[in-house]
Simulated scan of single mutants.
Amino acid sequence: MRRIYLLAGVAVALLAATVVWGALMRPGAPPDTSPEAGFARDMQVHHAQAVRMSMIVRDRTRDEETRRLAYDIALTQQQQIGQMYAWLETWGLPQTSSGRPMAWMKGRHHVEMIAKPEQPTPESPPMPGMATSRQLKELEQASGRDAEVRFLRLMIAHHQAGVQMAEAALSLSDDPQVRRMATSIVAAQQSEIDLMERMLVARGEAERTQ
């Protein structure tokens, strides 16, 4: 019986290895260190914080314009997170990487976006454009106009970095679905940046975006 269990275990292991190897060697699937894989992983993390901030501000203000914008951002970016998650599953690649964020952009004109290699602190954002833990806490504690202004300032910076990431993907990838996603992100987030800057102007906060 021990031998049977051992052989069964070996068979299961070999089957699992075959499935994984087949997925990794699937024709057309990008390698683990590719710009496509890096973009899908990093943009999921980036989007997840945008969704979080959007949900926070919806609970902290009654302003319909802000709440509508936050809902649109959360809905769109959560959907894109699902798409990028599915890419990695289809490609047979892990959802996370041991490498540092933005490493897939190395050596290109977007190199300034690469996260610094120094040991991160609790106050360090995981990627450029992302809010720190302190900024998120301050947003959670704010309300009304103060919450709106904090959200708009944080999300403008967040979107600006997101646009640069998407532009990097466009310059590095020939994958049609990645390029479609990146093009959509650039167009949508730049439009939202313009809207948020106008919203800040309406609140007398235009100088803070400079």
Results as ranks from 00 to 15, higher is better:
residue 1 M to H: 15
residue 1 M to Y: 07
residue 1 M to E: 08
residue 2 R to N: 10
residue 3 R to I: 13
residue 7 L to Q: 11
residue 10 V to T: 14
residue 11 A to V: 14
residue 20 V to L: 14
residue 20 V to F: 11
residue 23 A to E: 12
residue 29 A to G: 14
residue 30 P to S: 10
residue 32 D to F: 09
residue 33 T to G: 14
residue 41 R to A: 03
residue 46 H to M: 01
residue 49 Q to S: 02
residue 51 V to I: 04
residue 54 S to H: 06
residue 56 I to K: 02
residue 57 V to K: 05
residue 58 R to Y: 03
residue 60 R to M: 12
residue 62 R to K: 08
residue 65 E to D: 09
residue 67 R to Y: 04
residue 67 R to P: 02
residue 68 R to E: 06
residue 69 L to E: 03
residue 72 D to S: 02
residue 73 I to R: 00
residue 79 Q to S: 10
residue 79 Q to C: 06
residue 81 I to S: 05
residue 83 Q to A: 08
residue 84 M to L: 00
residue 93 L to R: 05
residue 94 P to N: 09
residue 98 S to Y: 13
residue 101 P to N: 15
residue 102 M to G: 13
residue 109 H to G: 14
residue 110 H to A: 09
residue 111 V to H: 09
residue 112 E to W: 15
residue 113 M to D: 13
residue 113 M to W: 07
residue 114 I to W: 06
residue 114 I to E: 10
residue 115 A to E: 07
residue 118 E to G: 05
residue 120 P to L: 02
residue 120 P to A: 07
residue 122 P to Y: 08
residue 127 M to W: 01
residue 131 A to I: 03
residue 135 Q to R: 08
residue 135 Q to E: 08
residue 140 E to Q: 15
residue 140 E to I: 07
residue 150 R to Y: 11
residue 151 F to M: 14
residue 151 F to H: 06
residue 152 L to K: 00
residue 155 M to E: 08
residue 155 M to Q: 09
residue 156 I to W: 08
residue 156 I to R: 02
residue 162 G to F: 06
residue 164 Q to H: 10
residue 167 E to M: 06
residue 169 A to E: 07
residue 170 L to C: 12
residue 172 L to R: 09
residue 173 S to E: 07
residue 186 V to I: 13
residue 187 A to W: 13
residue 188 A to H: 09
residue 189 Q to K: 14
residue 189 Q to A: 15
residue 193 I to N: 03
residue 197 E to P: 00
residue 206 A to W: 04
residue 208 R to D: 15
